[in-house]
C-alpha cells in the first residue's frame, strides 16, 4: 500500500478508537429540569428568533415540515378526571455516539472538538439519511427556500446562515453564542467561564428550567446538576449517549414508568 493511503487508513482507524471523542476541548451539556418546565413555549420562539428559522405556513405544517428545532412534547395519561399531563422540551440531543453522523455520505454532520454534533450546511446535499437515522426526530429539512416578506427579513440574525432549499438543519446548541463567548474570553485572555454561554432557549426560559455549561468543568452548574438522583437521559437504552440530561418531574403517583 502506498504511503499516503496508509496515512489515511491510520487516521480513519484512530477515529474508531474508543476515547477519541473524549479528548474534547469542552463538552457542552444541557440540563433540563422537568419539574420546573411548565410548557410555556417561550424557548420555542426564542429559537425561531435566534436561528433564523422560517415560518412555513399551514399547508406545510400539515406535512410535518415545520421548522421548530426545539419542540415541547406533551403527553397525556389517564381519563377525566384523573388526567396527568407531562411536558418535555426536545431538541437535538448532541449524542456522543450519534447515529446521524454514521449515515451522512458527505460528512456534512460530524462531531466537533466541543462535543457538539454539528451540521455543515454548505456541505449538505440533502440525502435525508441523517434525519432517517435520528432517534429523536430533531432534524429539519428545507423543502423549499423560504423567504420573509419585507421588512420582516430585517430581523434575521447575521450570525447564523439563512439556509436554502435542500439542506438539512437542526439545533446547534446556539453555536454562534458559544463562538461569541469564546471570542470575548479570548479578548480578555481568560478561559470561558461557567455561565458565559446561554443558548437562546435557556436565556428566555421564564422558569429557569434550562441550564447549559461545560461538563468537563467539575465546578459548573451542569456538572453538579448531572449528579442529581433525578437525572435521566432520553431513550438512554438506545446508547446514543446524548448530551442533554433531563431531571425527572416530581409527580403525584410516582410511577416511574420505565424502571
Amino acid at each position: 500500500m502506498p504511503g499516503f493511503l496508509e496515512r489515511i487508513a491510520g487516521k480513519l482507524k484512530s477515529y474508531r478508537e474508543p476515547g477519541y471523542y473524549t479528548k474534547l476541548d469542552h463538552k457542552w451539556t444541557m440540563v433540563i429540569d422537568l419539574d420546573k418546565c411548565n410548557g410555556c413555549e417561550a424557548c420555542v420562539v426564542a429559537c425561531y428568533a435566534e436561528n433564523n428559522l422560517p415560518v412555513v405556513g399551514k399547508e406545510q405544517c400539515e406535512k410535518s415540515r415545520a421548522f421548530s428545532w426545539l419542540r415541547i412534547e406533551r403527553y397525556v395519561e389517564g381519563e377525566y378526571p384523573d388526567v396527568k399531563v407531562k411536558f418535555i422540551p426536545v431538541m437535538c440531543q448532541h449524542c456522543m455516539k450519534a447515529p446521524c453522523e454514521t449515515g451522512c455520505p458527505v460528512y456534512a454532520t460530524y462531531h466537533n472538538q466541543d462535543g457538539l454534533n454539528v451540521q455543515v450546511y454548505n456541505r449538505c446535499v440533502g440525502t435525508f439519511t441523517c434525519a432517517t437515522y435520528c432517534t429523536y426526530d430533531v432534524r429539519r429539512f428545507n423543502w423549499f427556500t423560504y423567504k420573509w416578506p419585507k421588512p420582516l427579513e430585517a430581523q434575521l440574525n447575521p450570525d447564523v446562515s439563512v439556509r436554502e432549499m435542500g439542506v438539512m438543519e437542526k439545533c446547534t446548541f446556539c453555536i454562534q453564542r458559544i463562538r461569541s463567548a469564546k471570542d470575548t474570553a479570548k479578548d480578555e485572555a481568560r478561559p470561558v467561564k461557567d455561565g458565559d454561554i446561554k443558548p437562546a432557549c435557556s436565556q428566555s426560559c421564564p422558569t429557569g428550567a434550562i441550564y447549559f455549561g461545560d461538563m468537563q468543568d467539575p465546578e459548573s452548574v451542569v456538572a453538579k446538576l448531572a449528579k442529581s438522583p433525578r437525572r435521566y437521559r432520553l431513550l438512554e437504552e438506545l446508547n446514543a449517549d446524548p448530551s442533554v440530561i433531563y431531571l425527572k418531574r416530581v409527580m403525584g403517583d410516582g410511577t416511574s414508568s420505565h424502571e
Binding site: N112, V118, Y121, I175
Partner: peptide, 11 residues
C-alpha cells in the same frame, strides 16, 4: 487551534 474545524469559519 481548531483551525480546520468546519464550524470555526462556517455559520
Amino acid at each position: 487551534k481548531n483551525g480546520r474545524d468546519c464550524w470555526t469559519c462556517h455559520k
